Amino acid sequence: MKLLIIEDEIKTAGFLKKGLEENGFSIDIAEDGGIGASLARQGDYDLIILDVMLPGLDGWSVLQALRRRRDLTPVLFLTARDNVADRVHGLELGADDYIVKPFAFSELLARIRTILRRGPLRQAATLQVGDLEIDVQRHRASRAGCVLDLTPKEFLLLSLLARRAGDVITRTLIAEQVWDINFDSGANVVDVHMHRLRAKVDDPFAARLIHTVRGIGYVLEDRSRR
């Protein structure tokens, strides 16, 4: 499979290229956002690894250009920008995943393989699971027509679950995506926030959408029609 790395740190790009080629991937590298966007238009890539802070065009602009022309090539952000607002913004623009530097190569490789297995993530203006609707552009969520009053972290958490509806999301992945990549997944912060999210998404309604998978994590799915 053919991957494009858009990364201006030469050592990081070289490390990624070496490791991914050793795992059977064909790699192109661009050290400038504008050049990367041009290569993405011309090449037939299976996945793009994209930094945010780039010379030329920044990563946000590169991804926006891709999605504007309905290019659904999977994009994985690999960046030092680790705050919640950046993660939300990246996912809202249409990224398939978001990893914060510093990172473990084994995890990056696992994330890449997961994305490639499920294929391009079809980005829609609205994500829907049962009677739950998430407007990713307007940063709003509603259930059965009732607007949900969510904090930024709760919205990011719910969006993460909705984008992978039906898949079990581990506490570790939730911690990395919503908080920090070095977050201690053994702490109960994930469970506390999930409890608060459930109070808004599930408790006022007859059917539950957020389900616990004991010892692993959580899954968002509509089981009412089973």
Rank of each mutant, 00 (worst) to 15 (best):
Q177V: 13
K17P: 01
L116G: 08
G14V: 03
L108H: 01
L16V: 06
A104D: 13
L63G: 04
R69H: 12
L72S: 14
V147H: 04
L78A: 06
S61A: 15
P74K: 07
Q42Y: 03
R113M: 13
W60D: 08
E92V: 10
S185A: 13
S142R: 15
G56C: 01
G43A: 08
G19N: 15
E133W: 06
R140L: 15
I29L: 09
D203A: 14
T126W: 06
L78H: 09
F15D: 10
S185M: 00
E221G: 06
Q42C: 05
V213H: 11
K2S: 13
D191A: 14
V136I: 15
P74H: 11
V100P: 01
L76M: 14
G90C: 03
R68T: 13
V129T: 10
V189C: 01
H139F: 13
E154Q: 15
W179G: 04
V75R: 04
R163G: 04
R223S: 05
E7F: 10
E107Q: 10
T212W: 01
D71L: 08
R208E: 15
G119Y: 05
V75H: 07
A95C: 11
A13C: 05
R111F: 12
L209P: 05
R113K: 15
V201Q: 02
L47A: 13
Q123I: 15
K101G: 04
I112T: 02
V190P: 06
V192M: 10
G19I: 00
A207S: 11
M1I: 02
L157F: 14
I174K: 04
D131C: 03
R41E: 14
A65K: 11
D82P: 02
T12Q: 14
P204L: 05
L72M: 14
I48P: 05
E7L: 07
P120W: 11
I6M: 06
I48D: 05
R226M: 11
S142P: 04
E107T: 10
R111M: 11
L158Y: 09
I169N: 02
L93H: 00
S61Q: 15
L20V: 03
S159C: 09
R214F: 08
T151Q: 09
S61C: 03
L66G: 06
A175M: 01
G90R: 00
Y98N: 09
R67C: 12
T114G: 07
A85W: 00
L66E: 10
D97E: 14
D44V: 06
P120H: 08
A141T: 07
S106R: 07
L47S: 08
R198E: 13
L160T: 12
E31F: 06
L4P: 00
G90A: 10
L148W: 02
A207D: 14
L78D: 05
L161H: 08
